[in-house]
Design a protein around this nucleic acid. Structure first.
Length: 489
RNA sequence: GCCCCCGUGGUCUAGCGGUUAGGACAUCGCCCUUUCAAGGCGUCGGCAGGAGUUCGACUCUCCUCGGGGGUGCCA
C-alpha cells in the first residue's frame, strides 16, 4: 500500500568525497535500508571539466570503502537511467521545450559576458537586476544580431509572483517562502547544459525519488526546485535538510582546516566502521546512551525524526577514541595487513612482506595502544629499532631508583635459564613479586621502560616473547649499566 | 541589504511545562592492578540574553544577540 521509498545520492564527482557529503550519503543509505527502500546513485556531472573518469572512480571507491552501497544507478543500472547527467541531455531539453511552449520559461538573448557587466553596472547604481527586465527590453534587432553571431540563448525560468511556498521538511518542520523573494533564474546555459537546480528536479522526478535527504545549504534553493516541480506537474518529493558539519572554529569544514575527505581519513589510518559510526552520530543519536553501533544496528534505529537540527563540529579526538575501540576489537590479521605499508615504509620489513606469525604477534601486542593504524610506527618501534633508553625525567628517575638495580640484576641472572614460551614467561613474571618482595609498580615500571622505553605499552609477557631472550637480556643489561655504572654481576 | 536555518558545559548529544538538567569525547584526579591499557569512581564545566504566557519554563511566544547558509549561466 505504501509506495516504495526511493532516495538518491547525487555527488558531483570532483575527485574526493567531502566528510559532509559522506554524511549525507550515509543518512540516505541508512534511511533507505531502514525502510527497505532503494538508494539510487546518480552522477551530477554537468560540470564536465571537473568530472574525469578518474575522479569518479576514486570517489566511488571511497564511498564503498566507507561501507555504503547502492541498489540502482551508476554502474548498477536500473529502470530510470541513464544515471549520469551528461547522458541525459535529451531529457532536460525535452522538458525545456515544454516549459517554453507553455511560456513558463523564456529565451534570453544576451551573452554571459553581457549579463555580467550589466549586473555590475546595475549594482553600482544600486538598482536591482533581473532577467525579466532585460527580457522586456529585448528587441527584434537584438535577437537577430545575436542569432547572426551564431549564439544560442540561455533559458530562463519564470517565477510567478505572490506565491506562498511551504516546504514540509522532515527535519525542520514547515519552512515558508514567498515567491517574490525569488527572481527568474537560468535553467539552461548558453552552451546548452542544464543548471543544477533544474537538472536535479528533472532527475528526481523522473527517477521517482520520494525523499531528498541532503545538506542544509540546499534549503534556500529548494523553492526554486519546487517551482519547477509544479510547473511541470511533477509530484514533489519529501525533503529532509540535515545541518552542516563545522570545523572547530565553527565555520564550514574546508580544506584549510586540514583533512576533509574520506580518502584522507583512510590514509591516516582510520577504520571504515569507525568513521561510519562516528559520522552517524554527527547529527543523529539514538535515544539511549549508546555510542557504538554496528551498521545493522544503525540501520535498525535510524529515523529522520531523531536527526538534530543544529550544526555539529567535527571532533577528531572523539573519532580517534572510536577508532581505538574498533582497532582493539579488530582481528590481528586485518590490522596487520593494514599496517603493512607503514612498516614497509619504515623499512622494518621487506617490500613484499606478508603477515608472518611474528608480525601478527606484534600487532596483537600493540593494537590496544593504537588510535590509528599509522600509530603502528610509534607503538611497534621498540620491536624493530634499538630504543633510546632515556626519555622523560620521570622515566629516568624510575630507572635509577634503588629497587631497579635489584630488579635488573635479578632478571639478568634468572632469565638466562628461563624458556621463552608464553607459559613459562607468565609464570616467571607472576612470581617476580614474591621473589623480589617488592610492590608491582617498582618491578614492572622499570622493566617496561628498559624494554620499550616507556612505562606504558603491551603486556610484559608479549613484549618479551616478541623481543626474544637475547634482546631482552641485552636491554636489561644496558639499563643496568647506564643507570648504575660499574655494577658487576 | 534581503530571505532562510540554527543556538543545552571546550566538543557530540538526551531532554519535548514540574528533572538534584542525564550520557559520551577531551581535561584533571583517585581507585584497582601483574606495569600501561581496559575497567570503576570522581573533579571542572552548560540551558546565549531579555521580555512575556503559566502556579511553574531548557522546553511555548516575541525581541535582541551570536553562528551558519542562500541570494551565480557552481553543485
Amino acid at each position: 500500500m505504501n509506495k516504495q521509498i526511493r532516495v538518491r545520492y547525487a555527488p558531483s564527482p570532483t575527485g574526493h568525497i567531502h566528510i559532509g557529503n559522506a554524511r549525507s550519503a550515509l543518512f540516505n543509505y541508512l534511511f533507505a535500508r531502514h525502510n527497505n527502500g532503494v538508494l539510487v546513485m546518480r552522477l551530477d556531472d554537468t560540470d564536465r571539466r571537473r568530472s574525469t573518469d578518474e575522479a569518479i572512480k576514486t570517489m566511488l571507491q571511497d564511498i564503498q570503502w566507507l561501507g555504503i552501497d547502492w541498489d540502482e544507478g551508476y554502474l548498477k543500472g536500473g529502470d530510470y537511467g541513464p544515471y549520469r547527467q551528461t547522458e541525459r541531455m535529451d531529457l532536460y531539453n525535452h522538458y525545456i521545450d515544454i516549459l517554453l511552449s507553455e511560456e513558463k520559461a523564456y529565451e534570453l538573448y544576451y551573452t554571459e559576458e553581457e549579463i555580467h557587466s550589466l549586473r555590475d553596472s546595475y549594482e553600482k547604481e544600486g538598482k536591482k537586476f533581473s532577467y525579466r527586465e532585460l527580457k522586456e527590453k529585448e528587441t527584434e534587432q537584438l535577437r537577430n544580431a545575436f542569432k547572426n553571431k551564431n549564439l544560442k540563448p540561455a533559458i530562463v525560468f519564470k517565477v510567478e509572483k505572490d506565491e506562498e511556498i511551504i516546504i514540509n521538511d522532515l527535519v525542520r518542520g514547515n519552512v515558508a517562502f514567498n515567491s517574490n523573494e525569488f527572481k527568474d533564474f537560468v535553467i539552461r546555459r548558453e552552451n546548452g547544459t542544464p543548471v543544477y537546480n533544474y537538472a536535479t528536479v528533472i532527475d528526481d522526478a523522473l527517477m521517482k525519488i520520494t525523499h531528498i535527504i541532503r545538506a542544509e545549504e540546499h534549503l534556500s534553493n529548494t523553492p526554486k526546485q519546487l517551482f519547477i516541480f509544479n510547473a511541470l506537474n511533477f509530484p514533489p518529493p519529501q525533503f529532509a535538510h540535515i545541518s552542516l558539519i563545522l570545523a572547530p572554529d565553527r565555520t564550514k569544514l574546508s580544506k584549510r582546516h586540514g583533512a576533509t575527505s574520506v580518502g584522507q581519513y583512510r590514509e591516516m589510518g582510520f577504520l571504515p566502521e569507525a568513521l561510519f559510526n562516528y559520522l552517524a552520530l554527527l547529527g543523529w543519536s539514538s535515544k539511549d546512551d549508546r555510542e557504538f553501533f554496528t551498521k545493522e544496528e544503525l540501520i535498525n534505529l535510524f529515523t529522520l525524526e531523531s536527526v538534530n537540527k543544529a550544526p555539529a563540529v567535527f571532533d577528531i579526538d572523539k573519532l580517534k577514541w572510536m577508532n581505538h575501540h574498533y582497532i582493539s576489537k579488530a582481528d590481528d590479521e586485518r590490522i596487520c595487513r593494514l599496517a603493512l605499508p607503514y612498516m614497509i615504509e619504515k623499512k622494518w620489513i621487506k617490500e613484499d612482506s606478508n603477515c608472518s606469525l611474528k608480525l601478527l604477534n606484534t600487532v596483537n601486542a600493540v593494537k590496544g595502544n593504537m588510535e590509528t593504524i599509522k600509530d603502528i610506527i610509534k607503538v611497534a618501534a621498540p620491536f624493530f629499532e634499538e630504543i633510546d633508553l632515556v626519555k622523560t625525567e620521570e622515566e629516568q628517575r624510575i630507572l635509577k631508583q634503588g629497587e631497579s638495580k635489584i630488579v635488573f640484576s635479578y632478571l639478568i641472572g634468572k632469565l638466562q635459564n628461563i624458556e621463552f614460551t608464553e607459559g613459562e614467561l607468565d609464570k616467571f613474571i607472576n612470581e617476580l613479586k614474591t621473589a623480589l618482595k617488592l610492590p608491582g609498580k617498582k618491578i614492572y615500571h622499570p622493566m617496561r621502560i628498559a624494554l620499550i622505553g616507556s612505562k606504558s605499552g603491551p603486556e610484559l609477557t608479549k613484549i618479551m616473547l616478541i623481543l626474544g631472550k637475547e634482546r631482552v637480556i641485552d636491554r636489561f643489561s644496558k639499563a643496568l649499566n647506564e643507570s648504575f655504572p660499574g655494577t658487576n654481576l
